[in-house]
């Protein structure tokens, strides 16, 4: 039987796994002697760390770009869905089409004229200019941990990133070395997209009121940061759930119940047999999927 072609074992050692879990927080600036120590001891993880640091630095150096037209379309669709955006006239549609380029700096006398004539579009333009200016003024922050998984998934999907068979939905990061630039671009795009999709005040989630569900999952290899993020997502979902279409709500609920059952089962198994690597992988995968499902549900109106 052949082994994996990666230098790293296909099923990562516990220390590598802990390193992976602590890595997002470390890259976001939190001190972690364990991460540093492990990077000194494990050649593979040292390369991963160096590459991700390069990606992060490249991300910070990238100019903030306007999102693609699809994002604008999604914003419009969300506004329409909420009744915020009235059905547009042909002139307004022309304005909408010209808007992305105009916001990117291209001169457009038509757009300016329309904004003077149409009160609604003037407000839209003012808001988007404010969003753009605020985005430019924002410090270039690292994306949250969840985005890393999405970046990885996108790279895997494009075949740029080769993922060892361990785990699923892209929970491993084996070889970033040659791809710092595309990763940086993708991360920056994802960051800007995330900011803009959530930008309109009227679309922001209601502040969650459901108490954070605490658990001892840190003992199961789940970082406190991740668990905190998951708790926040659950809170937001609890607030949003009742407004979902019944069919969608049922699907999300069924999926979350299925994942919760997996999490519970895996935790029980790991409690009994802490060395069960496969159960640990399933547990981490279930947590990741749960976060993705919640995120998907919360983004539903913005799509």
């Amino acid at each position: 039987m052949t082994s994996s072609t990666e230098n790293r074992p296909e099923i990562p050692r516990p220390s590598c796994r802990e390193f992976d879990i602590a890595l997002p927080a470390y890259l976001e600036g939190q001190t972690s002697p364990e991460v540093e120590r492990h990077a000194r001891e494990c050649e593979f993880c040292a390369v991963v760390l160096a590459d991700l640091e390069a990606v992060r630095d490249n991300c910070r150096a990238l100019p903030l770009e306007e999102p693609p037209a699809l994002v604008w379309a999604n914003v419009r669709a969300a506004l329409k869905a909420q009744g915020v955006l009235q059905e547009s006239r042909p002139a307004c549609r022309e304005f909408d089409l010209a808007l992305p380029a105009y916001l990117e700096g291209e001169p457009s006398p038509e757009a300016e004229r329309h904004a003077r004539e149409c009160e609604f579009c003037a407000v839209v333009l003012a808001d988007l200019e404010a969003v753009r200016d605020n985005c430019r003024a924002l410090p270039a922050e690292d994306p949250p941990a969840l985005l890393w998984s999405k970046v990885r998934a996108a790279l895997e999907a494009e075949g740029i990133l080769k993922v060892p068979a361990a785990g699923f939905w892209g929970t491993r990061v084996p070889a970033w070395a040659q791809w710092a630039a595309p990763v940086g671009a993708l991360a920056a795009l994802a960051m800007v997209t995330g900011i803009l999709v959530r930008a309109p005040e009227g679309l922001r989630h209601v502040e969650p009121t459901v108490p954070v569900r605490t658990s001892a999952s840190a003992n199961f290899g789940v970082s406190p940061d991740f668990e905190k993020t998951l708790g926040q997502l659950e809170q937001s979902f609890a607030v949003r759930e009742s407004s979902l279409d019944p069919g969608l709500k049922a699907t999300y609920r069924k999926s979350l119940d299925s994942l919760d059952a997996s999490i519970k089962e895996c935790r029980t198994t790991i409690e009994a047999k802490p060395s069960n690597a496969l159960a640990q992988e399933y547990l981490l995968a279930a947590y990741t999927e749960k976060a993705e499902v919640l995120q998907s549900a919360l983004e539903m109106d913005a799509r």
Partner: peptide
């Protein structure tokens, strides 16, 4: 080419 479905009447049923 981007095709998209928009809700014109938010009060309409699913």
């Amino acid at each position: 080419i981007q095709f998209s479905t928009h809700v014109v009447d938010p009060s309409a049923g699913a």
